[in-house]
Design a protein around this nucleic acid. Structure first.
Length: 928
DNA sequence: TTCTTGGCGTA
DNA sequence: GTACGCCAAGAAG
């Protein structure tokens, strides 16, 4: 009688509360106490309670907690969990509330001195299995995954990620079944619990070794014969640690059950004392759900959350997707029906498939449409038949299909919803279609969730809907056998393409309302969305590159590199791969016997620039040669060679592509090729800029903001001295030097410059010391003096951090948010990293907002000034590059300068002026 | 073939 | 100390 099989849910309360604390934003109850973690915990229990009467829901339940005293593992190994930082101070008082919450749900709560929650869970699991029960462990702790059974009688549920964990999951993640997981864990160790493991062995190697040999003991026995010297040595040397680790991760059950299994039965959750608890803690959302529903909320329509946690996206909404229901449209009449319906309802989701060509040569394979959840179709337009004899699959002719689609795509009255609208708009522009009235789920997600989630379509679908899209490689294959999308079978192509449109439709309707409620509308509507056609046009323009000049440079660099190679081999006593940091380290330190530290966690010698410069200063001439070799090789391989290969044969120009949702702060990023890191700082690198040239009869014009980030810092921090200096047009680093050091010597100015930048990057004494090559105390003194002179800066930093800790995100002047999930991490490195990024984000992000606004305004401003021949080509963070017809330079400079300097207005008023420096000439090198 | 690491170019 | 993208080597598959 499978229906009657009892099902025990064991909730790992201790680990849950830690994770809830770090994942959820702070929340205060009516006593003024921080209860974010308690809320998370309560919500989790609520969710479990909801499944009480469902199929496969719990019949029995218990919460297992750590008692907090040391366990038998400490007798075995006194370092066990020795390096755990103490719990955060606002979490400690929440601990007792966990028991209160559990009692409020009338769920038994079990803890036992000397035993960790894991062991108690192991014990109950064993007992329940013996009794023929089913067990679900509610946790995501990897140690507990050892308990999972192949037959499904024991599985796990990770409520935080809404993930079901079974044998398949373990095999997928660790490469071994649950029974062997303990052996893998023993090898890899655990820095959080201070389980030693074997040095140099991480998850990958551990998993591979166990898979190969079958068990930990077998691995240790076979250690002698292992090929890799480092690995062999570590295994032999640390075999005892491995065995100890095996015991530390072993879950033991040597106790009597504190409560018999039957005592854990749970039929329903009585209304009291739950209600009283919710009222007391002020958990209004949950309380509202209780109303009229007994203790169980309705599964259908949710009551509007009265006071939703400020965590935005909430839980995923599981959907079911039937890909076989998607339609392939190869008939004009049917396409017309779909288009008519789109017109009637005023909105349609679209997704384009390129045929897999490169750059401007990319053709169109097909268009997919969605009109409602699950109602989607694919219109193949450019699928080949695979061989010359056949005519290809049944499909509309490209021209015919586009002719039907064009009026709809260009209709202002029909909303076109897309993911990454820019790329689709650009592809359609190649076919003379100008998409009107577009929305972009990728950009909406970017405006809402930057810093905490990704914005790729598959990733968004997974997070919002717990659904895995058909991967592209399932349609087009992978590796050498990859086929162009246009050559894929229509049936598979339909499943893939129509699903994308379906998901775009669903995603938009899921997140649209958040734009307003989470105050992301301004950034989305006024900055990022209007930028779409502008950036698309820039990508289409491209920039002209002097191929012959680049080839010449490549040649020069190559010759010089070859010369350096000979010298280096001479000194090294033989040839080796100079480009290999590993081999270079061995040559310098082992063969030549130079003194130098090793660093890096892999144990390899560091050979980075700083280290080589140190050697050079010590008189090691070959270090200088290696540095020169590196510079030349880098320039040749990354720039002069690569750039030639990137010239589009059709246009003779280089077309970079901008990613609009890549940089957390809101900046654009550039790729294929990256034109935002073309050298300029060194004389030799700067020559590469000369390769970027203007079209015949034109000049290249470069306009860049001068010190925009420092200006914004002065604005944010409200520092009178700095604001006045900027207003006067003074040299800001000199002003800083005189304020902080009392003199304006060149040396002081340089130091001041370094500190000014350090401020923008989230200062730390440690970092500044490393950067300036001084002691940490000295660096700290310097920072203190800086803060004394500019208390506004100190204040800006503390209020920014305060706000980010409270809300979880920072904001720019335009309201762009960047989330920092690690801002309250108990791991110091993560937390401090998040703090530095949080200090920087409003400044870097506002700068990005401003230049984006300038870009949005630019085409109209140029057109209004009669400068229709002037085209915007590149955007490099604080610089815009244009191509201007000869004779128009002066006027263009004037317009561009005006637009850029006033780009923040009227939305935002800055109390520092923005300066814009403009130059022009035959190439980028002279223009900048 | 695909992933990770060390290194390095820009703002 | 912030934010990126690209390259070669080496490791893993």
């Amino acid at each position: 009688m499978p229906d009657a099989q009892p099902h025990l849910y064991l909730v790992d309360g201790s680990s849950y509360i830690f994770r809830a604390y770090h994942r959820l934003p702070p929340l205060t109850n009516r006593h003024g106490m921080n209860v974010g973690a308690v809320y998370g915990y309560t919500a989790m229990l609520w969710k479990l309670a909801e499944s009480l009467s469902k199929a496969d829901g719990p019949t029995h339940m218990a919460v297992i907690l750590d008692k907090g005293s040391s366990s038998f593992r400490n007798e075995m190994y006194d370092q066990y969990k020795a390096h755990r930082p103490p719990a955060p101070e606002d979490l400690v008082p929440q601990m007792p509330l966990i028991r209160v919450a559990t009692r409020a749900f009338s769920i038994p709560c079990i803890e036992q001195a000397g035993l960790e929650a894991d062991d108690i869970i192991a014990c109950y699991t064993a007992a329940a299995r013996e009794a023929g029960w089913k067990v679900t462990i509610v946790s995501s702790d990897k140690d507990l995954m050892q308990l999972i059974e192949d037959d499904g009688s024991v599985d796990m549920l990770d409520t935080m990620n809404d993930r079901h964990i079974d044998r398949a999951y373990v095999v997928d993640k660790f490469g071994v079944p649950p029974q062997l997981l303990g052996d893998v864990l023993a090898l890899m160790g655990d820095s959080v619990d201070n389980v030693p493991g074997v040095p140099g062995i991480g998850p990958k190697t551990a998993s591979q070794l166990i898979q190969e040999h079958g068990s930990l003991e077998a691995v240790l026995a076979a250690a002698d014969g292992i090929k890799k010297p480092k690995l062999r040595q570590n295994l032999l040397e640390h075999a005892d640690n491995a065995r100890l680790s095996r015991e530390l991760v072993r879950l033991v059950c040597e106790m009597n059950l504190p409560e018999p299994l039957e005592a854990l039965e749970l039929k329903n959750i009585p209304e009291e004392p739950l209600r009283e608890f919710l009222v007391d803690q002020g958990f209004k959302t949950l309380l509202n759900r209780m109303v009229g529903q007994g203790s169980r909320p309705s599964n259908g329509e949710r009551p509007a959350p009265a006071a939703p946690l400020p965590m935005g996206p909430g839980e995923a909404e599981a959907i079911s997707v039937d890909r076989s229901a998607y339609l392939t449209i190869s008939d004009a009449a049917i396409l017309e029906e779909w288009l008519a319906e789109a017109r009637t309802q005023g909105r349609v989701a679209i997704d384009l498939q390129g045929d897999g060509g490169h750059g401007l040569a990319e053709g169109l394979a097909g268009v997919s449409l969605a009109l409602a959840p699950g109602r989607a179709a694919y219109v193949p337009l450019g699928h080949g038949g695979g061989d010359l004899l056949s005519e290809g699959p049944a499909q509309l002719k490209l021209a015919d299909g586009l002719k039907l689609l064009k009026p709809l795509l260009e209709d202002e009255a029909v909303l076109k919803i897309a993911h990454n609208l820019k790329d689709q708009q650009r592809l359609l522009a190649d076919h003379d279609i100008a998409v009107a009235a577009g929305e972009d789920v990728m950009l909406a997600s970017f405006a809402l969730d930057s810093g905490r989630f990704g914005h790729g379509l598959d990733e968004m679908v997974k997070r919002h809907f717990e659904h895995a899209c058909l991967p592209l490689k399932a349609v087009c294959g992978t590796g050498q056998k990859t086929i162009r999308f246009g050559d894929a079978p229509i049936a598979a192509a339909t499943e893939y393409a129509a699903e994308n449109a379906d998901m775009v439709w669903r995603l938009w309707h899921r997140i649209e309302h958040r734009l307003a409620s989470e105050k992301a509308t301004r950034v989305y509507r006024m900055v990022d969305l209007p930028l779409v056609p502008v950036v698309g046009q820039m990508e289409r323009e491209g920039i002209k590159v002097d191929r012959a000049y680049l080839a010449e440079l490549s040649e020069t660099f190559a010759t010089e590199t070859a010369r350096l190679e000979e010298v280096i081999y001479e000194v090294a006593g033989g040839p080796f791969t100079i480009g290999s940091p590993q081999q270079l380290g061995q040559v310098l330190y082992d063969r030549l016997g130079l003194k130098g530290g090793r660093k890096g966690k892999s144990g390899a010698y560091s050979t980075d620039q700083a280290e080589l410069e140190r050697l050079e200063a010590e008189g090691v001439e070959v270090a200088r040669r290696v540095l020169e070799w590196r510079q030349l090789t880098k320039l040749r391989v990354t720039y002069t060679d690569a750039l030639q290969a990137q010239i589009d044969p059709k246009s003779g120009r280089v077309h970079t592509r901008y990613a609009l949702a890549a940089a957390q702060t809101g900046r654009l990023s550039s790729n294929d090729p990256n034109l935002q890191n073309i050298p300029i700082r060194t004389e030799i690198g700067a020559r590469i800029r000369n390769a970027f040239i203007a079209e015949e009869g034109h000049s290249l014009l470069s306009a860049d903001y001068g010190q925009i980030e420092l200006r914004l810092a002065a604005h944010f921090a409200d520092v009178p001295e700095l604001k006045e200096a900027f207003a006067r047009g003074d040299d800001i680093h000199t002003i800083t030097a005189s304020q902080v050091f009392g003199d304006t010597s060149k040396e002081s100015r340089n130091k001041a410059k370094t500190i000014n930048f350090a401020i923008l990057y989230g200062i730390s004494a440690f970092g500044l010391a490393g950067r300036m090559g001084i002691g940490r105390d000295e660096a700290k003194d310097m920072i203190d003096r800086y803060f004394e002179q500019f208390p506004g800066i100190k204040n800006y930093i503390s209020t920014t951090l305060q706000q980010v800790r409270e809300c979880g995100f920072s904001t720019t002047l335009f309201g762009r948010k960047t989330h920092f999930p690690n801002i309250r991490s108990s791991i110091m490195n993560l937390r401090q990293g998040a703090e530095r990024a949080a200090i920087n984000a409003p400044i870097q992000g506002t700068s990005a907002d401003i230049i984006k606004r300038a870009m949005v305004k630019m085409p109209d401003a140029l057109a209004a000034a009669g400068l229709s021949g002037t085209r915007m080509l590149l955007s490099v963070h604080d610089e815009l590059v244009f191509e201007v017809p000869h004779g128009d330079e002066e006027r263009a400079a004037q317009v561009i300068r005006d637009v850029m300097a006033s780009a923040a207005e009227p939305v935002v008023q800055l109390d520092v002026p923005l300066s814009v420096e403009v130059g022009w000439g035959a190439n980028w090198g002279v223009a900048h």
